[in-house]
Amino acid sequence: MSLRSDLGRVRGLGSANEGTSHWWAQRVTAIALIPLSLWFIYSAVTLVGIDRAGFKVWLNAPGSILLMTLFVIALFYHMQLGLQVVIEDYVHNERNKIVSLVLNKLVAIFFAVSSIIALIKVAFGG
């Protein structure tokens, strides 16, 4: 039995037992995503109905692959953080919650890394 009070045990931790680091990372990625998302929407508008050759030309234009990579990293990081809160709010069974949280992280990393590899392939491949 612990001698710590309930308040002392939970203070600064929150439902995920990790304090403010989640909140902070969510804000940092959100700030990064403001300009990156606006740039992405602008780019998407210019890419409407483009073929692969045109997409490759666009990706090789100065800044495109850098900003796309940064966008993908910030997007999937922010997505993982947001979905984590949704899971913590609605999945009450402890085992299911932990499985969902782990899957959430792994899926986010999988899609982020595969997107970045795809960008490199298109830009530098045939």
């Binding site: 692969r52 993908v72 899609f111 595969s114 590899i117 960008l119 298109v122």
Partner: peptide, 11 residues
């Protein structure tokens, strides 16, 4: 996920 699919389709 659609974006990731789209990029991978291009690759």
């Amino acid at each position: 996920l659609m974006l990731a699919y789209w990029l991978n389709a291009a690759a």
